[in-house]
């Protein structure tokens, strides 16, 4: 009974849909196989468990990969374009920030906090939004709203803690405005992106 429970725990390694379709049958088959080796010694039991663990590791990986593959298939042209635009914005912001710091351009450095926030929150936030939308099929705008709020908030707290500790001239207000601008900027991008997706779906 304990071995059956252990195997059921191991089944969590498989994608949810696969578990729902075949989980109970796999447990039944495992139970049948386990009955065969019950009369054997410790070496037989170890060999059996090694085979089962290797089977789970190998096949759960394959099933997970296939699930991700399905996600890639449903990636529409608008998604690819949106993703490319996000990457381009991050690259431009990163370049501007680097250029401003290197040449000490006052007008760019004025927006330094906002650019900093757009780059860091953009990389982390967009990755979180993309994974959640594609793997969990959640609404893009709502996911973006909450993910970006959490990511920008978390980064603001981390930057405040570090800034307070290392920089005597640390200015919280500037940092706050920077992350607020970043949040609103990325949210607007995702709003446009989700509107484009909806328009494409209604045309299709």
């Amino acid at each position: 009974m304990l071995s059956k429970r252990l195997y059921q725990l191991m089944l969590l390694a498989y994608p949810r849909d696969f578990r729902l379709d075949y989980g109970s049958e796999m447990t039944q088959v495992f139970h049948d196989c386990h009955r065969e080796i019950e009369s054997g010694g410790l070496a037989t039991a170890l060999q059996f468990w090694l085979r089962i663990i290797l089977d789970v590791v190998r096949t759960a990986g394959v099933e997970r990969w296939e699930t991700l593959g399905k996600g890639r298939e449903i990636m529409k042209r608008t998604d690819v374009t949106g993703l490319a635009i996000c990457v381009a914005i991050i690259a431009v912001a990163f370049f501007l920030l680097g250029y401003g710091r290197k040449h000490e351009v006052a007008s760019i450095l004025l927006f330094g906090h906002a650019l900093d926030a757009i780059v860091t929150a953009g990389v982390i936030g967009n990755l979180v939004v993309l994974l959640l939308v594609k793997m969990k099929h959640l609404s893009q705008f709502r996911t973006a709203l909450w993910s970006l709020l959490i990511v920008n908030g978390a980064l603001l707290i981390i930057a405040t803690l570090i800034g307070n500790a290392v920089d005597p001239s640390f200015n919280f207000a500037r940092l706050f405005v920077g992350y607020l601008v970043s949040f609103l900027f990325w949210l607007t991008i995702h709003w446009i992106w989700s509107r484009t997706n909806t328009a494409t779906q209604s045309v299709a």
């Binding site: 498989y14 696969f18 379709d21 075949y22 049958e25 796999m26 447990t27 088959v29 495992f30 196989c33 085979r51 089962i52 290797l54 089977d55 789970v56 190998r58 096949t59 759960a60 394959v62 099933e63």
Partner: peptide, 13 residues
């Protein structure tokens, strides 16, 4: 050849 439950049901799927 001894198929494990994962290999078996992955192939069945």
């Amino acid at each position: 050849i001894r198929l494990g439950p994962g290999t078996l049901y992955g192939a069945i799927k």
